[in-house]
Amino acid sequence: MNQTVQAKPRLTTSAMIASIASEGQRTDAAPFGHALVEEGLRNPRIVGMTADLAKYTDLHIFAREYPERFLQMGMAEQLLMAAAGGMAKEGFMPFATTYAVFATRRAYDFIHQVIAEENLNVRICAALPGLTTGYGPSHQATEDLAMMRAIPGMTVLDPCDALETRQCVAALARHEGPAYMRLARGRVPLILDEYDYQFELGKAKLLRDGKDVLVISSGLMTMRALEVADQLAKDKIEVAVLHVATIKPLDVDTIVAECRRDGRLVVIAENHSVVGGLGEAIGLALLQARVLPQLRHVALPDRFLDAGALPTLHDRYGISLDVMARNIRTWLG
Rank of each mutant, 00 (worst) to 15 (best):
K8D: 13
S14R: 12
A15C: 07
M16F: 15
A18H: 12
S19V: 05
I20F: 06
E23L: 14
G24A: 09
P31F: 11
P31I: 08
G33Q: 10
A35T: 05
V37Y: 13
V37H: 06
E39D: 01
G40D: 10
I46Q: 02
T50Y: 11
L53S: 03
Y56H: 04
H60A: 15
F62V: 06
A63C: 14
R64G: 12
E65I: 08
L71D: 02
M73C: 09
M75N: 04
A76N: 10
M87F: 15
A88Y: 15
K89E: 15
E90S: 12
T104A: 12
A126L: 03
T132R: 02
T133H: 04
G136H: 11
T142L: 15
D144W: 10
G153H: 13
L157N: 01
P159W: 14
P159F: 12
D161L: 11
A162L: 07
T165C: 12
A171W: 12
A173F: 09
E176F: 12
L183S: 00
R185I: 10
V188S: 01
P189H: 07
Y195D: 01
Q198L: 14
E200V: 15
G202C: 07
R208T: 05
D209A: 11
L214Y: 02
V215E: 00
M223W: 14
L226E: 02
L232I: 06
D235Q: 11
V239L: 02
D251R: 03
I255N: 00
V256W: 00
R261C: 02
G276R: 04
G279M: 10
I282H: 02
R290W: 03
V291Y: 03
P293F: 13
L295N: 00
D302V: 09
R303E: 15
F304W: 13
L305Q: 06
A307V: 08
G308V: 07
L310S: 01
H314W: 15
D315A: 04
G318K: 07
